[in-house]
Simulated scan of single mutants.
Amino acid sequence: MQGAHGARARACAPPPRIHGLSARASLAVHRIEARSDSWYLTSGATDRALRRFRAFLHPPGRRPLYPQESMVTSCPGCAFDDVRHARDVLQEVLDRLPPRARAELARLVRPLDTALRDRTLPDPFAHRRQWRTEFWWYRRLADPSWE
C-alpha cells in the first residue's frame, strides 16, 4: 500500500512492548494472545498479569500478604483482582511461548514468584480443597474475609 508521498504505509502498528521484555519476546507474547482460544488469555492479558502481580507485591514491609478471591470470576478483567489468576495467565503464556521468549518471561516471573512465596503464608488446609491446588500459588493462605 502506497501512502500520499509514496512511502510504504504499515498495515498496522506493532503491538506495544511489555515492560521488561525485549521487542521480540513481546511480539511472541502478543502472537500467543492473538492465537489463543482461552477465555482469559486475551490481547494484553500478559502485560496486565505482570502489572497485577507487581502491584500485589508492591506494599513495602514484611507483613504477610493475602491473595483475594475475585468476586466476579465470570469477567475476564475482574478475575485479575485475584493475583493467583494473574499467575495462572503467566503460566499459560510460559507454557505456550517458544524457548527464548519463554526464558525471557521466566526471568521476570521468577523473582515475583520468590517474593510471593516470601510474602504469603502456606495454607495448611490446601490439600483438602480440590480446586486448583496443583499450582503452588493456590496453596497459600487467601484473605480470610472472602472465605
Rank of each mutant, 00 (worst) to 15 (best):
R107D: 11
H127K: 08
R107H: 03
T46Q: 00
P111C: 08
R132H: 13
R8N: 14
P76N: 00
L97C: 08
P16T: 02
L57I: 04
L97S: 01
W146G: 14
L112S: 05
E134S: 07
D95W: 14
Y66G: 01
R107G: 08
A101K: 05
P122G: 00
A34M: 12
D95P: 08
P14I: 10
S43T: 10
R139Q: 12
A13P: 10
W39F: 12
P14Y: 11
P59T: 09
T42F: 11
Y66W: 11
W137D: 01
A126H: 05
R84I: 07
R102C: 13
F125A: 09
T42Q: 13
C78A: 15
L112Y: 02
A9W: 11
P76K: 01
F135V: 03
P67R: 05
E92Y: 10
G77Q: 13
H58W: 01
R31A: 11
A86I: 06
R96G: 01
I18K: 05
S70L: 06
G77W: 08
H19E: 12
L97D: 02
S145P: 04
A55Y: 09
L21E: 00
F135C: 11
E147H: 14
R100L: 14
W131A: 14
L108T: 05
D82N: 03
R128I: 05
P15W: 09
L27F: 00
M71N: 04
H85W: 01
G61Q: 12
L105E: 02
W131R: 14
R117V: 12
R63N: 12
L27Q: 09
L97R: 05
R51A: 15
Y40G: 10
T114F: 07
D95E: 15
P15A: 15
P111T: 07
R128A: 08
E33P: 06
R17G: 08
E33S: 07
L90A: 02
D81H: 13
V72R: 12
Y66H: 11
L41D: 00
S36P: 06
R51P: 01
T120L: 03
E33W: 00
C78S: 12
A103H: 13
A49M: 00
A9N: 07
V29M: 04
R96I: 01
S145F: 02
A23E: 15
L116E: 04
A55T: 11
A9L: 15
A7Y: 04
I18D: 02
L97I: 08
A45F: 06
R63P: 10
